[in-house]
Amino acid sequence: MSVITLTLNGEMISGLTGQTLLEVIREHGVELPTLCHLEGISERGGCRLCMVEVNGRMTAACVTKANEGMHVNTHTEKLQNYRRMILELLFAERNHVCAVCVMNGHCELQSVAAAQGMDSVRYDYLSPELPMDASHKRFVLDHNRCILCTRCLRVCDEVEGAHTWELKGRGIHSMVITDLNGPWGESPSCTSCGKCVQVCPTGALYDQGSTVAEMEKKHDFLPWILGGRGKKEWNW
């Protein structure tokens, strides 16, 4: 691995080849909002919040490899504006009623929006009619709060190895499903490990029986498991 130098918001910084821009940027203390990115699972590049300007062109930092001589800008007015617009789009897409959500106060969508200064939604609320799935004995899936980040899919496939979760349909009609679009509680592949619940950034996946603002999630187990596995730190 060799060292590369690039310019971040006017300052010369260094990184390593093979690192993503997001990694380099965060290592240097610049905070970029992300939602679909989660350390420990593969990148998706779907939420587009981590967009930065590289040599004047926009690109998502989480899926762009850092390269020698890149000129990166992370917080131009335009980028900030676009980030707020994307968040507004997410809030308008489904029925995010924070006041009655189990994750109120601990939700990543909520905190990213607050950090970006998104305080009102100018778009029409699409208000789709979406179901909830409470058939699982330990967890609940509420489509109304899903932002289709696919963290649950990726953790289930890549870490647990069950591949219970999938996306069905496409575009605005996409939804997360378990197996053949059946009730989660009847899924033959689900191991009830709960990793999906822990990585879900919003109140779309939560524990049965939790009430408003009660649910908190932890996903620090991910780097730990994957570090151990990937680097073969555990020998037995």
């Binding site: 998706r44 590049g45 779907g46 939420c47 587009r48 994307i86 789009l89 997410l90 308008a92 897409e93 778009y123 029409d124 699409l126 932002i147 289709l148 996306l167 349909g169 496409r170 575009g171 605005i172 009609h173 996409s174």
Partner: peptide
């Protein structure tokens, strides 16, 4: 439906 601007932006 992968990225937000296209999935929701086109709808808006």
């Amino acid at each position: 439906g992968k990225c937000v601007p296209c999935r929701v932006g086109t709808m808006q």
